[in-house]
Design a protein around this nucleic acid. Structure first.
Lengths: 97, 97
DNA sequence: CTATAATACCTTGCAATACATAGTACCTAA
DNA sequence: TTAGGTACTATGTATTGCAAGGTATTATAG
């Protein structure tokens, strides 16, 4: 689900790690560095994300991650998976109430 | 989410492992023995489930698991957590579309 | 010029979860 | 008494998330 959330975020525009953490927090999802960095590295390794270095106004340069074509395809698949999971829970709620 | 699903199932009536696997499959959730048994043991250990042995028509006796009071309380909390997660994803979908 | 603080990225170790696989125990029927 | 089906259990592995600590770059204060 976190992977899915990150891809959703990056659909709009490239972001770097702290951007992502901040935006997830705005959606009530608390994620820390130790979780996000390995996740971004993994998604990059799997070809779903790419990154480019951009200089910062203040501080060291940042890795701005963006969706690749494969990432867009994977995101569509996750859309279906997520929808299916939500539906599963709905069914369980209804049938066993 | 699987934990949540199992508690939802057991809300209606006590079930044993194969019952649960079958009913989850009917809701399009594939779970295998190696996953479910440790999960049931854990929920029992945490006091969310109790079980009683019942004889079977054919084969060895079965452990029928049921929600405890603590389990019912935990289920309510999971309801909120799940609703929150679903809402989070909805927000991410809308804001970043 | 150096030291400090802030920012950004990365690594390591641990715990929890899910799976594959194999194993044990019980019951019925041939 | 043995074979097969059912039910429960145990072990090892991969993945995921977190805590904690570490490295590198930049700006600012002394």
């Amino acid at each position: 689900m976190l992977e899915y959330s990150v891809l959703l975020l990056l659909r709009r525009q490239p972001c770097y790690a702290n951007d992502i953490i901040k935006q997830l927090k705005e959606a009530d999802l608390i994620v820390v560095e130790g979780t996000l960095y390995p996740l971004l590295t993994r998604l990059k390794k799997d070809g779903l994300l790419s990154y480019e270095w951009r200089e910062s106004i203040q501080g060291p340069p940042r890795k701005y991650y963006a969706l690749t074509n494969d990432g867009t395809v994977a995101l569509k698949a996750m859309d279906d998976t997520w929808t299916s999971l939500v539906r599963t829970v709905e069914v369980l709620k209804l049938v066993h109430s």
